[in-house]
Simulated scan of single mutants.
Amino acid sequence: MQVFMYTGPSANSPDIPPGNNPRGHPDALFQRRHDGLNRGIGFFSGWLTQSLLVNMVFFQCVWFLAVIGAANGNYWLGPFSLMVFIIMHYFFSDTAKADYLLAVFAMVIGLIIETLFLRTGVLNFVGTAPSSEFAPLWVVVLWANFALIMNGCLQWLQRHLIFAALLGSSGGAVSYFAGIKLGAATTGSAMPIVLAVIAVTYALVTPVFLDAARRLSDALQCARR
């Protein structure tokens, strides 16, 4: 014996033409929820991509303005553009607080490293503000600028620290070479030696900054729970 149970008209039944589902019908409800989920995923994906793009663009702009500004005697351009980046970073990053802490740490490390470069004659920077005994401020702010992309466009490297060291090594050398060619610094030794020292330095600090960024971000997230 067969038992038939009536559950109401289906989406494909003759009573309800396809595309004309009543809003209360289960198939229609499922479709609306599915569409809503897709829109949510699309919005989040677009927002995330936009945030990473903004992060990368601001990083490049700060570097360019700081270097070009210093080469032309406008030493204030670097610190000013960094302040703009810091303000905008608050609106585009979920890890802004951790990034700000890392930026302070990076500036201290950068001041030490760049001053060592200066004292040992590896590099000579244009400008002496705030003191001729230390690396100039426009150079130090570039380290904060670097720190602000650790949880941004470079976040994907946090789980690939060996590759991060290689990328940091090459990227650091290219960045300093460009700065020298633009007139923001001069070398105190042969160019290959200078670039080798810079490459080794950034091969070490890049993974450290990435790992510190991840740990700071995780710690602050746990503290909020």
Score class of each variant (00 low, 15 high):
residue 190 A to Y: 02
residue 160 H to K: 15
residue 174 V to K: 11
residue 151 N to T: 13
residue 133 E to S: 14
residue 147 A to P: 08
residue 87 I to P: 04
residue 6 Y to A: 11
residue 84 V to H: 12
residue 46 G to F: 00
residue 12 N to K: 10
residue 81 S to D: 00
residue 66 A to Q: 01
residue 70 A to V: 02
residue 131 S to E: 12
residue 48 L to K: 10
residue 112 I to A: 07
residue 62 V to D: 07
residue 109 I to V: 15
residue 107 M to C: 15
residue 204 L to E: 08
residue 182 L to E: 00
residue 102 L to V: 07
residue 153 C to P: 04
residue 75 Y to G: 08
residue 20 N to T: 15
residue 174 V to D: 02
residue 87 I to L: 14
residue 73 G to I: 11
residue 180 I to H: 00
residue 118 L to A: 07
residue 165 A to V: 02
residue 119 R to W: 04
residue 3 V to E: 15
residue 112 I to L: 13
residue 183 G to Q: 10
residue 49 T to M: 14
residue 195 L to N: 04
residue 54 V to P: 01
residue 214 R to H: 05
residue 67 V to C: 03
residue 45 S to F: 05
residue 144 A to I: 09
residue 172 G to M: 01
residue 162 I to K: 12
residue 46 G to D: 02
residue 103 A to Y: 00
residue 222 C to K: 06
residue 173 A to T: 07
residue 16 I to Q: 03
residue 215 R to C: 01
residue 44 F to H: 13
residue 176 Y to H: 09
residue 138 W to C: 03
residue 170 S to V: 15
residue 102 L to S: 05
residue 225 R to C: 12
residue 82 L to Y: 04
residue 202 Y to T: 07
residue 89 H to C: 01
residue 127 G to A: 07
residue 192 P to M: 06
residue 48 L to S: 10
residue 211 D to E: 11
residue 101 L to H: 12
residue 28 A to P: 08
residue 186 T to N: 07
residue 136 P to A: 04
residue 57 V to Y: 06
residue 202 Y to M: 06
residue 10 S to P: 03
residue 45 S to A: 12
residue 25 H to V: 08
residue 160 H to Y: 14
residue 161 L to V: 06
residue 19 G to Y: 12
residue 170 S to G: 15
residue 54 V to G: 07
residue 111 L to G: 08
residue 76 W to D: 05
residue 39 R to Y: 09
residue 47 W to H: 12
residue 137 L to E: 03
residue 188 G to R: 00
residue 44 F to M: 14
residue 131 S to W: 13
residue 61 C to G: 06
residue 80 F to D: 04
residue 92 F to E: 00
residue 176 Y to R: 01
residue 32 R to V: 14
residue 65 L to Q: 03
residue 49 T to N: 13
residue 58 F to S: 04
residue 16 I to K: 02
residue 139 V to T: 09
residue 209 F to Q: 05
residue 71 A to L: 00
residue 189 S to A: 06
residue 50 Q to C: 14
residue 128 T to S: 13
residue 84 V to T: 00
residue 85 F to V: 08
residue 126 V to L: 06
residue 66 A to P: 06
residue 70 A to N: 01
residue 66 A to L: 00
residue 193 I to T: 10
residue 150 M to S: 03
residue 130 P to I: 02
residue 5 M to E: 14
residue 212 A to F: 11
residue 151 N to D: 08
residue 2 Q to C: 05
residue 204 L to D: 04
residue 188 G to C: 07
residue 117 F to G: 10
residue 222 C to G: 04
residue 134 F to H: 12
residue 171 G to K: 09
residue 63 W to E: 07
residue 219 A to S: 13
residue 37 L to I: 11
residue 147 A to D: 01
residue 171 G to C: 10
residue 222 C to E: 13
residue 107 M to E: 07
residue 224 R to H: 09
residue 54 V to W: 06
residue 101 L to D: 11
residue 69 G to S: 11
residue 128 T to V: 15
residue 189 S to G: 01
residue 17 P to H: 12
residue 178 A to S: 14
residue 51 S to N: 05
residue 21 N to C: 03
residue 7 T to V: 11
residue 62 V to F: 10
residue 157 L to N: 03
residue 116 L to P: 01
residue 200 V to L: 09
